[in-house]
């Protein structure tokens, strides 16, 4: 039985029920931005995010019905039509599992592209074409862990992106190169420079 005050996600886990998550991270504040974890709570007008909604006694909750699966599938389709998920195997698995078809929006659907990978410091690189805006890096850099406040946002809506103060290179920001952001990034948008260089070099390396 779920402990009082547990989220639907926690309760489901302890009951052996899987609910997919994308933005959620066990050690970070849940902001419930991706909405992949939504479930149907009978009596609620909208679906509710399992990673933050607290379970209540006698609640009737469907974690995998048609309505829930449609929402998850459409979110995944829209995401994959926007962002480069080639280094996000967990998202690839979800796309397959939900039968998501990212091509349905056409080959001219706008993608979020940010130009060349940002290589501006010795420790890590930033490849924002792969960024899904899960907010984890911003959170670890701010109140969730580091209180460094090097990372923030540009734009809004579809044009939101992760940014530094006036887009300055990392060494010119408050960044202390703790690497926490790289550690929590789920898609390869942030990765160690050595790993990046190795991957870059691989195709032309000695056979």
């Amino acid at each position: 039985m779920a402990s009082p005050g547990a989220t639907i996600l926690e309760a489901a886990r302890s009951a052996g029920i899987t609910i997919p998550t994308v933005c959620y991270h066990d050690h970070l504040t849940a902001n419930a931005v991706c909405r992949i974890c939504v479930v149907e709570w009978m009596g609620s007008r909208t679906l509710v995010p399992a990673c933050v909604a607290k379970i209540q006694p006698n609640a009737r909750i469907y974690t995998d019905n048609e309505r829930v699966r449609t929402a998850r599938r459409v979110i995944l389709e829209m995401l994959a039509a926007t962002v480069d998920l080639s280094e996000a195997p967990e998202l690839q698995t979800l796309l397959a599992e939900y039968g998501a078809d990212p091509h349905r929006f056409g080959s001219d659907a706008a993608r979020r592209e940010h130009g060349p990978v940002k290589v501006d410091n010795p420790f890590y690189v930033r490849d924002y074409d792969k960024c899904i805006l899960c907010w984890r890096c911003v959170q670890v850099c701010a109140e969730d862990v580091q209180f460094t406040f090097a990372l923030g946002f540009n734009g809004r809506g579809f044009e939101t992106s992760i940014a530094t103060f006036f887009d300055r290179p990392m060494p010119e920001t408050t960044c202390v190169f703790c690497g926490n952001c790289v550690g929590v990034c789920p898609t390869g948008a942030l990765k160690g420079k050595r790993e990046y260089l190795a991957a870059q070099g691989a195709p032309i390396g000695p056979r």
Binding site: S107, A110, R111, E113, F158, E159, S161, D167
Partner: peptide, 9 residues
């Protein structure tokens, strides 16, 4: 394929 305009200061 279109690209969203990058919004940067």
């Amino acid at each position: 394929m279109t690209t969203s305009s990058s919004v940067s200061p």
